[in-house]
Design a protein around this nucleic acid. Structure first.
Ligand SMILES: [Mn+2]
Ligand SMILES: [Mn+2]
Ligand SMILES: [Zn+2]
Ligand SMILES: [Zn+2]
Lengths: 145, 145
DNA sequence: AGGTGGATGAATATGCTTCTCAATACGGGA
DNA sequence: TCCCGTATTGAGAAGCATATTCATCCACCT
């Protein structure tokens, strides 16, 4: 499978857009950080390599990466949007501790199949879904204040 | 079971807060509209009855209603927060058409049980979850542009 | 009546995200 | 190589939903 970088280059040229040093740096930095990053956090990382970069460019590039199907946007309901590199990765959902923020990636075939079935029952063609499970992890559950 | 209004009154007095005409009007209006309302939409409805009401009061009251467990906040990824009255209603999730906005409430026992099981496997105590299925409804799917 | 604490509306502030704009970089053709 | 059109960029301003501030108001108790 193509690397995310190659996929991005391909996507850009298809749209008559250009691969630039800034875009390359932003994607490379994102891939290095295997995390659920907010635009601001990614901007901070990128600035360490190229302090002249503007945060508008980070927002714009994230938008492009989502359109290109290389990155997915997440929603942990913590006030900022978050992203993760999804290219070449298996789909998964998230189990989140509301106290400490611990975040576990989960995947359940039974659920995924039922989601498809439910959509079909209603005549829908499913394009994607979001599922977030919120609760307390074992550590935080014990010392519940 | 208590009505949402009674539940709200109870909650307020427990917290040494007061039931006011504004709060009563906001909840009554919300209950009349069996919809997924945004704060702005609710504000517009309420203003028709009492034009002197402030939108800060709508935001504040919605927050209280969520805390009281009478209302739930939703996230349809359309740029605004949305709410629905959940008191006395069965939990459900949503199936959303990305083209026309059609919104179907769904509930699947298999999924709900698996969610609990997954959380347990990871030592989590689940407090709640969000699940949104996005796609195209039968109408919009046919005339795909 | 006077006092106390919550509630309110208008205005202002906040925080994340997007847009505007002038300057710059790039790439293909003369 | 120079020219030209287009895409890109960074800085700052603007948008937009939501939260907060603050002076006033009101309900209730003594
Ligand atoms: Mn899933
Ligand atoms: Mn559910
Ligand atoms: Zn935890
Ligand atoms: Zn539709």
């Amino acid at each position: 499978m193509k690397t995310p970088q190659d996929a991005f280059t391909t996507y850009l040229s298809e749209k008559n857009l250009k691969m630039t040093p800034q875009r390359r740096l932003i994607l490379d930095t994102f891939i290095d950080e295997k995390q659920h990053l907010s635009p601001e956090e990614l901007y901070d990382k990128v600035k360490k390599v190229d302090p002249s970069i503007g945060q508008a460019t980070v927002y714009r590039t994230l938008k492009l990466l989502v359109e290109a199907g290389i990155v997915e946007s997440l929603d942990f309901a913590d006030g900022v949007s978050r992203y993760e590199v999804s290219w070449g990765e298996e789909h998964h959902d998230h189990l989140i501790c509301e106290r400490c923020g611990k975040n576990i990636e989960i995947l359940d075939d039974v659920i995924e199949k039922r989601q498809e079935a439910i959509a079909k029952e209603h005549g829908f063609t499913l394009s994607h879904h979001k599922m977030y499970l919120y609760g307390l992890c074992s550590k935080c559950g014990r010392k519940r204040s």
